[in-house]
Design a protein around this nucleic acid. Structure first.
Lengths: 202, 202, 202, 202
DNA sequence: CATGAATGAGATTTCATTCAT
DNA sequence: TATGAATGAAATCTCATTCAT
């Protein structure tokens, strides 16, 4: 007996639900957003949503997972075509320098993502997941730095790992400032980028 | 005729409730922690808690307010005795370099504080409150930098405001990393401090 | 694809809840009767009740509204077939003369209705609602009296409006007496009807 | 050991509390008004109030009792000096014809009184109390009517009892209309008085 | 598979009453 | 006697989840 609906159809539906959920979570926060909010936003029935996800928690997880997977794919692809270490670091900084601060959806997602990050503090299982993701990103940069050191682009004395952590610390810090109206986002980030790269090169 | 109870007694009680609340919020998050949790932790009855605070929201606000007021007092006092701009910047960095990462209560509070920050995104009124607080801290450093520039300690070409924002961006970024076990907190922060001060001095 | 449930089913359910609520309110009064009382009496769960009504206040309002709508429909229909003004006045009096004083449900409703009337004193919005309803009933009779005056049935010198108010004053007065055991309801009302009609005819 | 505070002092205090309670009940209704409302309005402490009354219910009862006792005293005194039956009936009607409709306190009390009347429906004990009070008033008028019949002032064929009940039915009816703005109170009551006395005289 | 009515545990908040001072 | 802080039972309302259709 073949499945009555195609896999593609189901994937599409799941993606729609996840999309709506992200928007609802962004708007109200995970706790405050209700399944009914997702029902209204997505147009699917409550029953349908529970056919695709077993709980609100699972939806949350998949929302975050999806977004993360996206980022990873984009960055991985880009890195595979960038030839120099410096261009990779530049690319990552520019990713954040090119952000449209007025994009409400992006802002919403940023808030949700950091809320989730903090929430993970309280659940071992989630924290592991989050840490794994983070490790990937740490690895990404420390490898790039090491490449740069090997190729002579970067100063051999800096700690690749420390500077990788440092990079993401900067990014988390700058992302958080979206909550403050009037924060000179681009000025600050440009200054940081410059100092960071200067340090790498020596 | 008023047997009543001293103002001090009431202040003390309020502080006790706030303390318990902070711990409960740190443990479970604002939404997930319940008044009953605070009841259990504080040992006071539900009625008593509502005699001192009119709602869970108010407790939350006072928890944050209390902690913030503390910080402001400590820093303001210290600044008034520090003579050079550099010593002020150094002092602030050292505040964070001397943190005990194993202090669970501190960690809990950090999480609560950033959750609150993100939560403010969704309530105009709260955001104003938060922004006011942030402006105080921004002002604190930009003034110090300007002092340093006037006294010849610091490079006159750097934007005091941008570098003040930059400072708190670093601090927010580094604070957020507490969620990740194994994050080389001191290494990263020391590196940042060094680079930051180098930039100031030129 | 909508398995849903017929509109009729939902209307029926609403009516059931309203019915139970009326009985609970009649038994204990609006403030004293609880949602749990309605849960027990109706057999529906709390959640179900809140699926059909958004608050206890709304239930109260709908209970009153339903009862009132009924009365209006019955009287309006009857009036449309009664040819003389006198027969209309007679009909209304007889409505109250034919009441079964032992009908506990009716008695309960009377009490609830007058409690609601008094309660309205304290809420502008509700008072407007109540006044609108009352105006309809006032109009009903003053029109009938004017008809009677035009047709020569009634004395042209009496104030239609005053006598319409007077009619409902009598009815409210007599309804209130249900609280007193042993009140000679029929005797008093018959006497009043006689005097009233005598006055109309002159 | 003599009482440390005079009886008079205590009576005075009780009266003050009752006064405040009446005003609070009138403003918000018995259920909705809180002991704290009475505390604020009276200026006495919660403890003090509970020293004089054992419960909120008891306050309610005494509020009503006090008001009623007042009415009875006033009417009894007046009746003892009025010589004709007609003058007594006239006096009672005029009591209500001379009311100041704009007196908010009176209006509030009227509402509270009728709420209490309806509330009594649900408690046998209270109903007995209320009925006893009502019987006094019924007796008052039926005796007056009988006097009038004996003296030749009134028609001997009317039922004294029925007409006594009828009188209070009118009064209850007219009192209830205070809720409706624009009700032609004086017109309606004057009309009723005239018809009533006409009937008595024949 | 889709639906949405039904459920009920659990959350916040109120308030009459008590009692130590 | 006077006080008002403390109490906790009880009320309203929410919402994730289930399941018959």
């Amino acid at each position: 007996m073949p499945p009555s609906v195609s896999e593609k159809y189901k994937e599409e539906k799941k993606r729609n639900i996840i999309n709506s959920a992200l928007i609802c979570f962004a708007e109200k926060g995970f706790e405050t957003a209700t399944i009914d909010d997702i029902v209204v936003h997505s147009g699917f029935s409550k029953g349908t949503i529970y056919n695709y996800f077993s709980s609100k928690d699972e939806i949350y997880l998949e929302v975050l997972h999806t977004a993360t997977k996206n980022d990873i794919d984009v960055i991985t692809n880009k890195f595979s075509v960038l030839r120099t270490a410096l261009s990779k670091i530049n690319y990552l900084f520019d990713l954040y320098l090119n952000i449209d601060l007025n994009n409400q959806k992006r802002l919403g997602f940023t808030v949700v993502f950091y809320e989730f990050t903090l929430h993970c503090t309280r659940e071992k299982k989630l924290l592991e997941l989050l840490t794994k993701r983070r490790n990937f990103f740490i690895h990404l940069i420390s490898e790039a730095i090491k490449e740069g050191q090997a190729s002579g682009e970067f100063n051999k004395n800096i700690q690749a790992d420390t500077y990788s952590h440092l990079f993401w610390t900067i990014i988390d810090g700058i992302n958080l400032q979206v909550v403050y109206k009037g924060f000179p986002y681009y000025d600050v980030l440009r200054e940081m980028k410059e100092a960071y790269i200067e340090k790498l090169k020596n």
